[in-house]
Design a protein around this nucleic acid. Structure first.
Lengths: 168, 168
DNA sequence: TTAACAAACCACTTTCTACCACTATTCACC
DNA sequence: GGTGAATAGTGGTAGAAAGTGGTTTGTTAA
């Protein structure tokens, strides 16, 4: 028997899932134990670029903290919170590991037939599959550049090149 | 002191409901246990942007406190309180989970046929459905911008790297 | 006294949720 | 690399819960 190492598991990778007639998607089995907290539930809300974001309880609490301490004036706070919370929903998986996507969120993300579920380390994103494909393709170029910068931060040889690239 | 099993239930999401001929709407089942206090009732009054706000007892008391400690001169205090309290109403659900919307409030919010009920964590808002749709659409743009601002400033994980990158 | 209105509540319909059963896929072991 | 077992994913259903319409009862005010 193997010893189980205490590794901090994280949400990585992308998975495709069909949206069934009832508006359900099955959450990748690998994600479930990480997403589900004490109550076995996690939290959805509107994300950037018209995707849905999903947070484990712990991460959700931190997001709430950010929201509540937002440096906004009264009017903007009110508006922001309204939009934020109106899109929020606590969900939990059924015995088969599926969740029901709230209609408002599905509509927001333009989800109709198929989704891409993307792990981003400590939260997930749920995209309309087509929208995701497009986004990913468009992002590949800039990704390579960003990755290069990240991995080799300004050694003397490529410094000049980096700066040129950044300035365009 | 009782057990502090603090189940952090909150009011999230948006729901649509028809207004029946008697001026009633059914409160989403999910909201009821959170809204209803000891006496099984909660509190309505005029809200911002021509909506109706609904508070659980606990929150209502805090609102009252705010009102009573408002730093206003006599004239304004009088005005404000008059407006505030004239729109306030304690309501409770019938056995089917419905409340009667006071006419004055329905009129204030321009509610005629259908409402959107929005959860904002510790209170709710009741909007005319059409007005809500419009408001939400108009707010989406600024929402993303505000959300970005919120997320960006110095997340602890990448702080160090950011600084390195910035110094070149 | 009665009309108008609000509250309580009965009955029906619709929707949702939990879960059963089957198929596909993955993984372990030979 | 092949085979069987276990796990994951999908379709669907039945019972429970929620939502809606409407009637009856009570209350207030003209």
């Amino acid at each position: 028997m193997m010893t189980k190492l205490r590794i901090r598991r994280a949400l990585y990778g992308q998975y495709r899932r069909p949206l069934d007639e009832k508006g359900r998607i099955s959450i990748p089995a690998e994600f479930r134990p990480i997403l589900q907290g004490q109550r076995g539930s996690f939290f959805l809300n509107r994300g950037f670029e018209r995707c849905i974001m999903g947070y484990p309880e712990e991460k959700w609490e931190r997001v709430l903290e950010l929201v509540s301490t937002a440096p906004l004036d009264n009017t903007n706070t009110r508006r922001f919170k309204r939009t934020f919370f109106s899109g929020a929903k606590e969900v939990s998986c059924d015995q088969q590991g599926r969740i029901l996507i709230p209609q408002a969120l599905a509509q927001y993300a333009g989800i109709t037939r198929e989704v891409a579920i993307v792990g981003l380390s400590d939260f997930i994103e749920i995209w309309d599959a087509e929208a995701w494909d497009k986004w990913l393709e468009q992002s590949m170029d800039s990704y390579e550049k960003m990755a290069e910068k990240l991995v080799q931060p300004a050694t003397s040889e490529n410094k000049g090149q980096d700066e040129t690239a950044a300035s365009t």
